[in-house]
Amino acid sequence: MMTKMLKTAAAVLALALAAGPAVAAQGDFLVRLRAITVQPQEKVGPVLPTFPTSGGSITNAYAPEIDFTYMLTDHIGVELIAATTKHCVEGGGALAGVGRLACTWVLPPTLTLQYHFAPEGKIHPYVGAGVNWTMFYNEKASTQLNTAIGATNVNLSNSFSFALQAGVDFDISEKMFLNLDVKYVDMDTNARLTTGALVNNLRADINPLIIGVGVGWRF
């Protein structure tokens, strides 16, 4: 999937370099639609107290993402990012033999304040920083975990922290542009695993790197 994304980006970039410049200005409203890959830079702790020598990893995900940017000035914009992805925890250490432990859907709305370096010209790089609120929903223990230790209920705590962003817009026409975007989100959760009267806890620092390629429209 990433190979296709990069090939698409290269093709549209060629069109962008041949296009005339479009001026980004105060009051502009930008809408971008991206294909993203979410790659957790994770650190998964043990399942305590039952499996102190366990560990794990978190799967990557691919999804569409939409964002909305309003230009407060020619250089300053504020962006709201919305997407939802599904991730699973794979067991490690003492739980490596179980395999998949649980899966959850993640909804991480993110608000960033951006600085746009070149409002005039064909290429518009920007950087941003802001806040992220991550909600975990539809958490479910895997069949493998239920078989190994019994029917288990999974609950994940939400996360609130910072986000960093860098990207660039390449003009295709006066209103349309190609977008490349990278975000880092500081994200963590505490998982509560309830199996009958037994309660286990697991802490995971997820900290995803989110890489996106897409198109946008300027209004």
Rank of each mutant, 00 (worst) to 15 (best):
V78A: 04
V78C: 03
L80T: 09
L80H: 06
L80I: 13
I81D: 00
I81N: 02
A82T: 08
A82R: 03
A83M: 15
A83D: 15
A83K: 09
T84K: 13
T84A: 15
T85Q: 14
K86A: 12
K86G: 12
H87W: 13
C88F: 12
V89P: 01
E90K: 14
G91N: 03
G91A: 06
G91P: 01
G92K: 02
G92E: 03
G92V: 01
G93M: 10
A94M: 10
L95N: 08
A96Q: 13
A96V: 12
G97D: 14
G97P: 10
G97M: 14
V98M: 06
V98W: 03
G99L: 09
G99H: 08
G99Y: 07
L101S: 00
L101N: 01
A102L: 08
A102W: 02
C103S: 12
T104E: 11
W105N: 13
W105F: 13
V106G: 03
V106D: 03
V106N: 06
L107K: 07
L107R: 06
P108C: 02
P109T: 02
T110A: 04
L111S: 01
T112D: 04
L113P: 05
Y115L: 13
Y115E: 11
H116L: 04
F117C: 07
F117H: 07
F117Q: 08
A118P: 02
A118T: 15
A118Q: 11
P119H: 09
E120F: 05
E120P: 02
E120D: 14
G121H: 07
G121M: 08
K122E: 03
I123L: 15
I123G: 03
H124L: 06
P125E: 05
Y126M: 04
Y126Q: 03
Y126H: 07
